[in-house]
Design a protein around this nucleic acid. Structure first.
Lengths: 135, 135
DNA sequence: CTCAGTGCAAACTATTTGCAGATTT
DNA sequence: AAATCTGCAAATAGTTTGCACTGAG
C-alpha cells in the first residue's frame, strides 16, 4: 500500500482512478507511457476512467513529484514514475525502444556550462535518437 | 541571392512566401522562432502568407535541411536555420532566453554511450532548463 | 456532510490537409 | 501551358476545462 501513501502524502484523495493509474505506471513493462497508452490499458483492464481524468491525474502526479513528463519528440508526451536516480534516454528510431542511461561526465559538464553562463540548472533533457549499428 | 539558391536547390520553386519566410529566419534577432512568431512578423511586415503556408514551408525547409525544428518544451515547436556547426541549448525559465552552446566532451561521451549499447546516433537533443543564479 | 474528484462533452492550441484559384518555370 | 504553390476554411491530434454528479474522509 505504499502507492496509497504516495498519493495521500501529495495531499490527494486516494481514489479509484488515481490508484489504477499509479498501478499502470508501476506495473507496465514499458515504463514510458503516453496518456493515451494509459487510457488504453485501463480500458483493457475494465478500469476506464476517461482521458480527461488520466490527463488530470498525471498532471497532479507530476506536480506531486510522483512522476515526470517527457516531450521526447513527436506528438504525445510520455510519463514515467520519478526514478530513484536521474537518467537520460536513447530512443531507437527503428523500434521505438527507449533505453535509459546515466553518465556522470555529462552531468557534471552540464553543471559547469550552466554556471559559466551565470545559470543554475533547474532541469534538463537529453535524448539521443539512435539506430542499430547494423543497417 | 544565396537564399533563392537554397530554395531552388531543394527542388522548391522560389515563391514570395518562401523568400519572405527564409528572410525572417535569416534576419531576426531571435533565432529560434515558432511558426506563429514567423506569421506575426510577416503580418507586421505586410507580407502575410497565412499560417498554413508558414507551417508548410517550414516543414519543407526542414526536409530540405534548410532549417531544423526543436521541441523544446511547452506547446510550440521552434525553428532555426541549420547552424554551421551543431550546438545545444539552454533555455532560461525566467526570461525565455535561449542560449546556444557546444561542448566537445559531451558530444564525444554521447557517441561512446550509444556505441556501447549497439547504436549509432542519428540525432540528439540536449536542452538545459535553467534559472539565473541570483534568485 | 463537505469538499475534492470524476467523466462527459465542449473548448482550446498547435498543426495538417482539401481544394479552387494564383504563381512559377 | 504545366506543374507547383497558396490561402482559406475545415479537419485533426493532443490536451484542458466547465459543470453537474459522485465518492472519499
Amino acid at each position: 500500500m505504499s502507492n496509497n501513501n504516495d498519493i495521500r502524502s501529495a495531499g490527494l484523495k486516494v481514489t479509484h482512478a488515481r490508484k489504477r493509474i499509479l498501478e499502470v505506471l508501476e506495473t507496465g513493462n514499458e515504463s514510458h507511457l503516453s496518456a493515451d497508452d494509459i487510457n488504453r490499458i485501463l480500458i483493457k483492464n475494465n478500469d476506464e476512467v476517461g482521458v480527461a481524468t488520466v490527463y488530470r491525474v498525471l498532471n497532479q502526479f507530476v506536480d506531486a513529484g510522483i512522476c515526470i513528463k517527457h516531450n521526447f519528440d513527436s506528438g504525445q508526451a510520455v510519463f514515467e514514475l520519478t526514478p530513484d536516480h536521474h537518467h537520460d534516454h536513447m530512443v531507437c528510431m527503428k523500434t521505438g525502444n527507449v533505453i535509459e542511461f546515466e553518465d556522470e561526465v555529462i552531468e557534471k559538464r552540464q553543471e559547469e556550462l550552466a554556471k559559466k553562463n551565470g545559470y543554475r540548472i533547474v532541469d534538463h533533457s537529453l535524448v539521443l535518437f539512435v539506430e542499430p549499428i547494423e543497417d
